[in-house]
């Protein structure tokens, strides 16, 4: 276990779960943040990918332990936008790493889609570009020169 992960003991993880579920509650057939594992497996994965989030996240969570999550979250958002930004990125980042979540939102990732030339090209279809050309040039020419079309 790396030192970044060691810093996230059950107390901090519980604090994370509480606020994470306020950010991403369950609903619309989707799991809440904690149900999706953002304070467990996906927290470990996020910190492995972004160890730089470890220290600021730890500081934010320590400020949340033993407080009312709703009040503490509202305070964090208004007084420490950078800290809130890290918290939100860890929660949403972990949530969207979960393959079940990705499939439920129909997000396959950034896919490789070859450019297949169409005939005629898409900009020519339905008279699209012909309409622009028919409207004529819109630029101001260099002084002393005429528009060349």
């Amino acid at each position: 276990m790396t030192s970044a992960l060691a810093r996230f003991d059950p107390g901090r993880r519980a604090a994370l779960e509480a606020v994470a579920n306020l950010l991403i509650p369950s609903g619309d057939g989707m799991p809440s943040a904690s149900e999706a594992g953002v304070a467990g497996r996906w927290l470990d994965e996020v910190l492995r990918l972004r160890p730089d989030f470890g220290p600021p996240l730890a500081a934010v969570l320590d400020g949340l332990i033993g407080t009312d999550p709703e009040v503490a979250l509202a305070r964090l958002r208004s007084t420490d936008p950078a800290g809130f930004g890290v918290l939100a990125e860890v929660v949403a980042g972990g949530y969207f790493l979960n393959p079940k979540v990705r499939s439920a939102i129909n997000y396959p990732g950034q896919q490789s889609v070859a450019i297949v030339p169409e005939q005629p090209p898409d900009y020519e279809q339905d008279g699209l570009i012909a309409s622009v050309i028919a409207r004529g040039p819109i630029y101001r020419p260099t002084p002393g020169r005429k528009r060349d079309r």
Partner: peptide
């Protein structure tokens, strides 16, 4: 052939899909 520019040669490859 962009109507916002004088005429002349354009770039060497066709545009990305709209």
């Amino acid at each position: 052939g962009d109507t916002a520019f004088p005429g002349g040669d354009g770039p060497p490859m066709p545009p990305v899909p709209l």
